[in-house]
C-alpha cells in the first residue's frame, strides 16, 4: 500500500509539473493561426500571385471557383470594380461577417487593389489568420488596365504567343467595355497549376 501511494504521488507530481508548464508556455495566438515560419514560407511562394490575364480569362469564363475580393474602400469599389467582385475593405477584413467569403471552401479567393501593395498586406493578414486558397492579382487594377483596357500592340515580328495574347486582350477589352455580342477568343493559356492545400484534416477516433 505504501509503495502504491508513493507511485501515485510521483506520477501526480509529474503531471502537475507538465500541466504547470502549459500555463507558463501559454500558446501564442489563436489556435488556427498560421505559425510565423509557415507564414514566411507562404510569403515566398510566388504562386500566390495570379497574372492579370489569368484573372481576366477566368472572369470571362465565369469560373465558379473564382472569388474576387476588392480590398479598396467602398467608394472606389462603387465607381469601378471587376465583375463579380465582393468589396471587403482592408479595414473590415477581420470582421466576422466576411468570414464566410474568406473561408469559403473550394473557392480561390483573389485579392486585388489599385496596385498590389494593399492587396499584399491584406494577403499577409488573411493568411496569418488561417485563410487558405488566397491569391493576389499581381499589379492590381493599374496593371490590369494597362494590359486589358489599353493593351500595347506587339511589334509585327513578335512571336505567336505575344500576338495571341494581344488578341486575347483585345477580346477581353470588348467584354469589359460593353461589347456584349463580341466574340471573345479565350486564350488557350496553360492553366497555372494550383497546389490545393488539403481541407481541414479529420482525425476521428473514440476511446
Amino acid at each position: 500500500m505504501m509503495m502504491k501511494d508513493k507511485a501515485y504521488w510521483i506520477l501526480a507530481a509529474v503531471l502537475l509539473m507538465l500541466g504547470g508548464g502549459l500555463l507558463v508556455f501559454s500558446p501564442a495566438g489563436k489556435p488556427d493561426e498560421l505559425p510565423p515560419e509557415e507564414l514566411f514560407r507562404a510569403m515566398h511562394d510566388s504562386s500566390r500571385f495570379l497574372h492579370t490575364d489569368e484573372v481576366t480569362r477566368r472572369i470571362i469564363e465565369e469560373d465558379p471557383s473564382l472569388l474576387l475580393i476588392d480590398v479598396r474602400n467602398s467608394e472606389s469599389f462603387r465607381s469601378f470594380s471587376l465583375p463579380g467582385a465582393v468589396n471587403i475593405p482592408v479595414t473590415d477584413l477581420l470582421l466576422p461577417e466576411w468570414e464566410d467569403y474568406l473561408r469559403a471552401p473550394g473557392m480561390e479567393k483573389v485579392l486585388y487593389s489599385n496596385d498590389d501593395i494593399m492587396a499584399g498586406q491584406a494577403w499577409i493578414l488573411c493568411t496569418r489568420v488561417g485563410i487558405t486558397d488566397l491569391y493576389i492579382m499581381r499589379g492590381g487594377l493599374n496593371l490590369w488596365a494597362d494590359h486589358i483596357l489599353v493593351p500595347e500592340a506587339p511589334p509585327e515580328t513578335a512571336s505567336m504567343e505575344l500576338t495571341d495574347r494581344y488578341r486575347f486582350r483585345l477580346g477581353a477589352r470588348l467584354y469589359f467595355t460593353g461589347g456584349t455580342g463580341a466574340e471573345v477568343s479565350v486564350m488557350q493559356a496553360e492553366p497555372i497549376p494550383v497546389v490545393r492545400r488539403e481541407k481541414k484534416t479529420t482525425i476521428q477516433g473514440g476511446c
Partner: peptide, 30 residues
Amino acid sequence: ERVSEEPRYDFAALIEEIGGAPGQVQQAIA
C-alpha cells in the same frame, strides 16, 4: 510608378471612353 496605391486611371471613365456604353459594366456586376 507602382509605389503607391493611387489609381493611375479613372477606371470607370476609361471604360466608358473605350466602350461608349455607360452602365454596361455596372450591370455585369453580379
